[in-house]
Amino acid sequence: MIALTPVVSVDAVMLEARAAALAKRSIKTSAKLEGITLGIRCTDLTTLEGKDSQGRVRSLCAKAITPRPGWPGVPSVAAVCVYPNLVPAARAAVEGTGVKVASVATAFPSGLSKLEIKLADTADAIASGADEIDMVIDRGAFLAGHEREVFDEIVAVRSLCASAAREVHLKVILETGELGSYDNIRRASDLALEAGADFIKTSTGKVGTNATFPTALVMCEALRDFARRTGERRGLKVAGGVRTTKQALTYLVIVKETLGDAWLDPGKFRIGASSLLDDLLMQLEKEQTGHYAGSDYIPKD
């Protein structure tokens, strides 16, 4: 088997120290306002629960399009992210607004099904109107050393996306909380980028450890090296456990200082979250009015 890409090693101690240093950046006043607005624009407003219904998805979409009715200057989020069955409802709700529909696919969240089923899952989501596919990698295969298998699966899903009649972007979920080391996270990032991922994404949100600052940093380093090598700027999506504005701002800091301003755009950076948007709106109001509104002033869904 040919080597896929050179293995890059990561030192955990210094990586975590650097991430901690970036988390200490003090984001105030105009920077905070800009960061919050950018954070909203980069949000993939997500609902991935077994009890999701069409009604629930429709209200999520309404909030995605107009997060704070009556407040001018609050942008729409980047996308809504749902299960494949709910893509048609989401598609109908956001049509013509610029908000994209992202669908998880490939036997999300475990990815432990046959490739044909994963491809059928993906094809169904695309046919139902998804603009973006959030696929999972087979972590079992990756940890067993079957890198080629992981790579080929991504390539197969990638070509399905590429063969769609419209543009469909592919986000590859590495499920970093299951990979066990930063070396593995870096390796999986490199594989996914080589295989054609438009975005590399940290987590499903379904395991104990989701996005963390050092994880985002190591993935940014992979994206930066890929861009340096190929000239192509691919994207990062952090997901799972991002609930506060402070966290969102730190992710923006990590992206800005590792990848540069060109990545501070929904085309290159996303945050997958459900409750984060509420905190962003609350902090936005605080920055604009000087005081916090009660949480009941922010619509929950």
């Binding site: 105030k28 105009s30 920077a31 800009e34 960061g35 950018l38 923006l252 800005k256 501070l264």
Partner: peptide, 10 residues
């Protein structure tokens, strides 16, 4: 113009 420039945080 630069995006997300850090405001002074004295």
């Amino acid at each position: 113009m630069a995006i997300f420039d850090y405001a002074p945080a004295p």
